[in-house]
Design a binder for these strands. Structure first.
Length: 123
RNA sequence: CAAGGCAGCCGGAUAGCUGCGCUUUGGCACAGACUAAAGUGAGGAAAGUCCGGGCUUCAGGGGGACAAGACACCAGAUAACGUCUGGCUGGGGAAACUCAAGGGAAAGUGCCACAGAAAAUAAACCGCCAAAAUUUAUUUUGGUAAGGAUGAAAAGGUAAGGUAAGAGCUUACCGCAAAAUUGGUAACAAUUUUGGCAUGGCAAACCCUGUUUGAAGCAAGACCAAGUUAGGAGGGCGCAAGUGCUUUAGCAUACUGCGUUAUACGGGAUGUUCUCCUUCCGCUCCAGAGGUAGGUCGCGAUGAGCUGAUUAGUGAUAAUCUGCCAAGAUGAAUAGCUAUCAUCCUGUUUACAGGACACAGAACCCGGCUUAUAGGCUGCCUUAUGAA
């Protein structure tokens, strides 16, 4: 599974209108991928975007939140994510301070929840 | 020793696993959102965006006026500055040292609460002194500004002389003003002489004087450029007219003209006309203008650059020489996790446990300013009150 970075604002908005799962250290949103210029959707790929708002803190805090989310995604997504899906991860206050194992656990739970919601929607 | 002052520096380290951006050189399907190796990858403030520049576009080629803003002791440094250095003056400190937005109040206007007689046309409440009157302890008139009282601030201060009482009325010292001389580039300082006290404070109130400022910013700006598209060519299709054939209404059609995203054509349903629903096909090539999506440049190896040395200077800094090239992202890399050590705190079993480990993340680039900052290190200087 190859993971690419989501860049367009349009895609973020579409993911926000899809399904979502709220955990204590992060929020996961997801929607099926659409093709666009410079964005090739094919088998065995998915797109991931990261969001850290100004509510979380100053710039170095937001950077740290994004980096930890990126590291968590590298651990979990390559084996467990669905293909052809746009994911958006939103940082929360606890993301910067929580133990890393907790973040990974939350991410796995969120993925499973989102997966079941997506299959329900398709049926 | 302790306390203090000034200047400067550091801003955790090591290892392992897993990863990221950029550059260079390779690999190949010659291209990428592929892959391998090597190199390289946040700060003292990267922050606030408060000044000054470079650079870019617009405006104006010049000069002046007005408006608005900024600045304001002197000399120097600098590309420039509201920055920096060295002085001066005035505050603070025992000292080392430090702080200051520090032109003009005699151009004009304005303000100075409360209190107080009076807050500025030099003034008079209580006083003090003299004279007159009578009700003999009061009133009136005049002189005066030493004393009292108010206030943030009260019309030079202290002493002596002087006087009816007093007063720069006179003298000495201090302060103030003016002039001269000397020293200094200057701000200014010192000395002497003269005056005889004259200009109460606020300019961070308006204002005056002098100097100075065109505007907007890298989302600046430059270039390339899908899609859409004016137009053109070709094909297909439709219509028209013409022609041909049968025959007067159809069929076919080289060439020609027009149309070709239209209230059209085809299909379906209902149904008397007519109405409703559905939306499959409609191509290819060339190409002007514009410049959207997107991309490239601007953008980091040439810069008011960094390092070291020498020389000049009190210093800011400058000159010369040597060596070096050192982040360049754009939903935004520079890391995530683990272990050990270092530092600090707490507890106790005194070598263990637990916890903490600042402020803070480049975004076109420089010079400053301001603000935030755990903890630590180095050098020089001061000694009133302290300890020895």
């Amino acid at each position: 599974m190859k993971i690419f970075i989501l860049k367009k604002r349009k895609d973020f908005i579409r993911a926000a209108q899809g399904v979502k799962s709220v955990q204590s250290s992060l929020i996961l949103q997801a929607a099926p991928s659409l093709s666009a210029p410079k964005k090739i959707v094919c088998d065995d790929t998915c797109y991931v975007g990261y969001t850290a708002t100004k509510k979380l803190g100053k710039a170095h805090v937001r950077n740290r939140v994004k980096r930890r989310l990126r590291a968590a995604v590298a651990c979990v997504f390559s084996s467990q994510a669905c293909e052809k899906i746009d994911y958006v991860l939103i940082g929360r206050f606890k993301t910067a301070s929580a133990p890393f194992a907790k973040i990974i656990e939350d991410l796995q739970n969120a993925l499973n929840e989102v997966k079941s919601q997506l299959t329900e929607k398709n049926e």
